[in-house]
């Protein structure tokens, strides 16, 4: 038995180590601010707390675009298109999840968590397909 190598993990979830690190940094900052909000030390809206994640998403989009352009320049347009498509679906699902969470906490309280987690189920389906494609 062995753990997944970093390269295998990155190939599976379609993020580079830099992108993973960026997501982790955003999670660190967000969780710190969320803990302060939940303890009542600060009182911003959930939308402003999730702004950290939205900035990270914007940077991830930028990275994905750069990778797409560079791959096209070296003549690997098919690989670039497939990678861009996966990244687009993943980022869209992550963005939708955060939007739904913000809506649930700030305004639309009647949303159930099963509905809020719908984009997460989509990501799970994508990950299952990608796992089966791995050799």
């Amino acid at each position: 038995m062995r753990l997944l190598e970093l390269g295998e993990l990155c190939r599976w979830i379609n993020f580079t180590p830099v992108e993973l690190s960026l997501l982790m940094s955003a999670t660190l900052i967000f969780s710190f601010l969320a803990a302060l909000k939940l303890d009542g030390i600060i009182n911003p809206s959930w939308w402003s707390l999730f702004a950290v994640y939205f900035v990270a998403d914007g940077m991830l989009c930028y990275f994905a675009l750069i990778v797409f352009i560079r791959l096209c320049f070296v003549g690997q347009c098919k690989i670039a298109a497939i990678r861009a498509l996966w990244s687009f679906f993943q980022l869209l699902a992550l963005l939708a999840l955060k939007q739904l969470l913000c809506s649930k906490y700030d305004s639309h309280k009647q949303l159930t968590y099963s509905e809020v987690f719908t984009p997460l189920y989509g990501i799970l389906v994508i990950l299952m397909i990608r796992a089966c494609q791995m050799r």
Partner: peptide, 9 residues
């Protein structure tokens, strides 16, 4: 790798 990925999934 596939088995490990599927277990995690």
């Amino acid at each position: 790798t596939l088995q490990m990925s599927l277990v995690i999934w």
